[in-house]
Design a protein around this nucleic acid. Structure first.
Lengths: 193, 193
DNA sequence: ACCTGAACACCGTTCAAGT
DNA sequence: ACCTGAACACCGTTCAAGT
């Protein structure tokens, strides 16, 4: 039993039964040990989930650095959305702790490189990437809620039209719309206000 | 025991010990009944949380409809952030289910009214509001993670600078920056692409 | 050093039974 | 009709004990 074995078991578990099924008890059962045996090799469950999400960030990859900075940001956002579309439960990690693992930092570094070539300072590039990242996290959170519960908890009859609109506006087209508006509002000059 | 009494107990519990402390068991204990007694008056726990969040949305209110549409959107975002700054646990609700309660619909209706006066169609106004709403949800999620865990789970030494940057960029100033970029990218004409 | 056993302090919810 | 009791199927984690 080692950290590597625990993480491998966690990855297998996530792929088979979803990220939410990764718990101290399922992992222990899978490895044939007590839940407590894990705590000698990892600090807590969120450390395991963070390592898993980091691997997923690596696999979704990053856009071609030769792209125009606006295109690059948009494609980076779509790749992030791909991850959360497959593992919506990963979103919870970002609300529980800052995610500053290797692949997360690599994304920001890549943004600094690409935007730097278009006149963004390092800080401005991080700010710009952060906005896109933030928007994507928000969209995927709302999208996750809609996937899990297509019908609203409160069943309103008459003003169903607006309620329906609110639900139906979390679409791929709306993600694209918001992303374009966002990137349109960013400028190398705007950034250093 | 009635729905109203249950919701009142939930509101009191949330105010005293936080929204996360609102559970079937704490509420039951507070009301002197079994957890199961609640289920005769509400469908599940998320219905209670949704009702609580709806009340909070009412209390944070909405900006002056006479404002310029860009100012109105920005202020609406700030009011939403106020709510999540006080009750970050409310964010989970939006990832679990669509929130289309009364106050949520009222926000969208108000946006339709204000943006409608500046040439937005109903659909375009909803789209525009949704983008701002989405960004705010994302920002507050990231902010909540930073409040709960100031230090990263993985303790990297050398590239601490970038990790630190990532954490430090979730600030009020960054929220303002992203919000301005977003609203700058929205146009009545842009909306109907 | 590494793992176990038992426990602590919790969750939401179902289902049959009581009054 | 409304509530109870007991149970099911879970969580993460601490702490003392074992080998």
């Amino acid at each position: 039993l080692s950290r590597e074995v625990v993480l491998a078991a966690a990855a297998a578990q996530a792929q088979e039964c979803g990220l939410d099924s990764v718990s101290s008890r399922t992992l222990a059962a899978r490895l044939g040990v007590t839940p407590m045996a894990l705590y000698r090799h990892v600090r807590d469950m969120d450390e395991i989930v963070a390592a898993l999400v980091d691997d997923l960030l690596v696999t979704v990859g990053l856009p071609d650095p030769a792209l125009d900075w606006r295109d690059w940001l948009e494609r980076a956002a779509w790749s992030l959305r791909d991850l959360f579309a497959e593992y919506p439960e990963a979103l919870g990690l970002f609300s529980r702790q800052p995610v500053t693992t290797g692949a997360a930092r690599a994304r920001v570094e890549a943004a600094v490189g690409v935007l730097g070539q278009s006149g963004f300072t390092g800080g401005d590039a991080i700010r710009a990437y952060a906005v896109v990242h933030t928007y994507t996290i928000g969209f995927c959170s709302l999208e996750a809620g809609r996937r899990r519960a297509p019908a609203p908890s409160e069943s309103n009859k008459a003003p169903e039209d607006l309620g329906r609109s609110i639900r139906d506006f979390v679409t791929e087209e709306q993600f694209r719309f918001g992303l374009c508006a966002l990137v349109a509002g960013l400028e190398p000059e705007t950034a250093n206000h």
